[in-house]
Design a protein around this nucleic acid. Sequence first.
DNA 1: GTCTATAGGGGGATAGAC
DNA 2: GTCTATCCCCCTATAGAC
Lengths: 190, 190
Amino acid sequence: MVKNSNTQRTILDLAEALLQDKGFNGFSYAHIAEKLGVKNAAIHYHFPSKEELGCAVVQRYRDRFQLWINNARVKDLSPQKKLDWFFGIYTTLRADKGRVCLAGSLETDFNAIPDSLREQTQSMTREMLSWLQATLKEGKQLGVFQFNGEAGAKAALVLSSLQGGLQIARALGTKKFHEVVEQNKQDLLA
Amino acid sequence: MVKNSNTQRTILDLAEALLQDKGFNGFSYAHIAEKLGVKNAAIHYHFPSKEELGCAVVQRYRDRFQLWINNARVKDLSPQKKLDWFFGIYTTLRADKGRVCLAGSLETDFNAIPDSLREQTQSMTREMLSWLQATLKEGKQLGVFQFNGEAGAKAALVLSSLQGGLQIARALGTKKFHEVVEQNKQDLLA
DNA sequence: GTCTATAGGGGGATAGAC
DNA sequence: GTCTATCCCCCTATAGAC
């Protein structure tokens, strides 16, 4: 059982974790209620429908991401450090009970989730990819990253591999995920 | 409605497609039955439980993969052509209604699927990664692939990115997937 | 091999008491 | 805000007729 001064926020935390653990169609209000120590119906008071709950989780994630990348602690970092920060997000997910990334989870269930949640997922993915592209481009111009082709394509490769890497790690262990991260770094210096 | 001389096989085809379309917890016997033009219960005659059905789908996929890689048409190809063949599998999936790869789908739902299916998923992923690693190693030794680090790590990166690439394409379109494939090729020649 | 019928459970969601 | 009670639907699965 989890207690928090802000119930709304705790529900979002639990829903986010469950989404990353079991997928949208693999978790229920009952799962949240049990961990929160309340009954099923109490969750509906805060989030009337599962669709709204899912959207709220992604919206919060998007807001959080924008806050981070616009904060001086990230914004003023070198491209290498920015990338390390980004990789760190995924490493933390992996270390936290093998959670996968929100985008990967929702994209995999893409054809079995509500429309509004699909749109949220699109926006989230676009925003992450956009930032990653800009970061890679900046690094290439500064000469600290080396790669052939467009920054957009390289960003797609890096993001895809982190997403897929967290998933493969579930089958083959954490070592595989770290190999993906390290290889990405290697390939940017080659 | 789909008809086929071999019902068993058609069910596996439909289940595989649904697994790649909606995930294990996003499809039901009713979905299969409707497409097959029979009633729900008829599916249970061929596959008593959803767990067995899921395992049969993955087992067939594994068998098929082993047949392919041991067939002269693939076995005797150059490393570059082998890789092209492998990428082609994913390109075909993307072109077929945006299906994602079986491994990615099951790994994402990993904590919400039966034990036996988890084991099947592990074996499938291990076998694909193993072949990819050998292919990359062969290419590196022949001097046609260039990359830093171990072939195992590079294989993990390539497989992860294909898996994630199919997922990201659902949110941002097919172009993103092709960027991932092309960037992978670029990075092997750099 | 497929049907109808049905059991049994879980899930999302609402109503009304407290 | 949370509770109990309840509704209704979908799901997996089984029994027995055809």
